[in-house]
Amino acid sequence: MLEVTALPLAELRARTSEKWREYPDDVLPLFVAETDFPLAPAITAALQRAVAAGDTGYVASRTPLADSYAAFARRRFGWDPDPGRMRSTADVSMGIVEILRRVVAPGERVIVTTPVYPPFFELVTEAGGVVERVPLRDTGTGWELDVDGIRSALDDGARAILLCNPHNPTGTVHSRDSLAALAALADEYGVAVVSDEIHAPLVQPGTAFTPFLSVNDAARRVGYAVVSASKAFNLAGLKCALMVTASEETTAIVRRLPVEVEWRTGQFGLLAAVAAFSEESDVWLDGLLHTLDRNRRLLADLLAEHLPGARYRIPDAGYLAWIDLTALGWGDNPARRILQDAKVALHYGPAFGTEGAGHVRLNFGTSPEIITDAIERIAALVGR
C-alpha cells in the first residue's frame, strides 16, 4: 500500500493557508479542517500542466467533472448517480445556500442535527431560513439521528433538513436504516433534505457509506447532495463542488439556478477534482485512509495514557476527533485554556451547538509526532 505521510513541520510552517497563518509558530494548529499531507500525484501533475499551458481562464460549459464524480461514486460507494443531474459551484457551503434558497421561504425553519459543523448555522441564515436544532442521539457507544425529534420538528412546521453525512464533528456514518427513516419522514411532510457529503471519501474500510440519494425512491424525490474532493484531497482553496440530484423535480430546481452559480467554480478546483476522482488517485486515497486509521487509534491510546478523563470515540470517517473534556473541569470552552497555556489550537466545542460545551474538536490529519506533542502539551495542564 502507498504510504501517505505528513510533511515535516518546517515545510508545513512555510504554507500560507489558514491553518498555518492564524497562530504564531509556537502553536500547534489542529483546529481547521486542512490536512498536512502532500497532494495526490495526479492532482499535482494536473495543476502543473495547467500552469505550464497557461490554462487559467474561465471554467468551460462542458467539462469531465460530473462523469469523473459518477465513476468515483460507482467505484467507492457502489452508487451510480446520473452525471446529467449534476451542476458545479465553488464549494459545498455555497451549494447548500443556493439550494436552501430555493426550497425554503424566508423565515421558514431548517433542521440541523447538532453538534454540527459551525457554518451550518450561518448558511441557514444566509439562505433566509431559521435554524431548528434537533440534536443527535447519544447511544452510549456512538451517535445517531433522532428520528422522533425530527418528526416533532416537522410537526411544528420545519420545512427542510440540512444533513451532515458523514457527520462533522463526530465522524458518525449514518446507517442506511436511519437515512431511510429520514427520507420517509421528509417525503411524508413534503420537505427537502440537503445532504452535505464532503467527508464521504474518508469513510474507513469496514464501514459502509450510504449516499443519501441512493437510499430509496423517497430519498431521490426529496434529496439533494452536495459533494466535493476538497476535504479528502485538501483542495479547499481551489473551489469546486457538485450539487447532485436524482429526480425530475429536484433536478429542475438545480437547473434553474443562475449560470453564475456554476461559473463560480474555480478552474484549478475543477482540474484538481477531476484528477482526484480518477482511478489514478485511488491508491493515494487508500494510503491516506490507512494513515488516518493509524492516527485515530494513536489518538485513542495517547488520550488513555495522558488524559484518562477525556471521552473520545474513534470516528468511522474523516480526520476530526470530537473529544469531551468535561471531566477535567476546564469549563464550557476548554480550547481557550489549551490554546493559551498549552499552545495547541483546537476548534471550540460550543461553536458546534450547546451540546459542544466542554468539548473540543481535534484535527488528526497530520503526523504522529505532532499528535503526540499536542496531547502531551495538553496533559501537562492537568493539576496546574
Rank of each mutant, 00 (worst) to 15 (best):
L65Y: 00
P29L: 07
T172E: 08
V244G: 02
T366E: 03
R87L: 11
L302T: 03
P169Y: 07
L213A: 09
Y58H: 08
L238Q: 05
P135G: 08
M86R: 05
D177L: 10
A379M: 01
T265E: 06
V103H: 13
G266T: 12
S152W: 06
I96A: 10
P166N: 01
E262Q: 10
G309T: 04
A317T: 00
G142L: 00
P106H: 15
V244F: 00
K343L: 08
A10R: 15
L271S: 03
L362K: 04
A275S: 07
L39A: 10
R87H: 05
E11V: 11
F364I: 15
D316M: 05
L47G: 05
P119K: 08
G54W: 11
T35S: 13
A232L: 01
L179I: 09
V116G: 07
M86F: 14
A208H: 09
F72T: 02
A246W: 05
G84K: 06
W143P: 00
R13K: 09
A380M: 01
G128H: 09
R255M: 08
V4P: 10
R296F: 04
A42F: 02
D148L: 11
T366K: 06
E122F: 14
D91H: 12
A52M: 07
L39D: 02
A186I: 09
L242I: 09
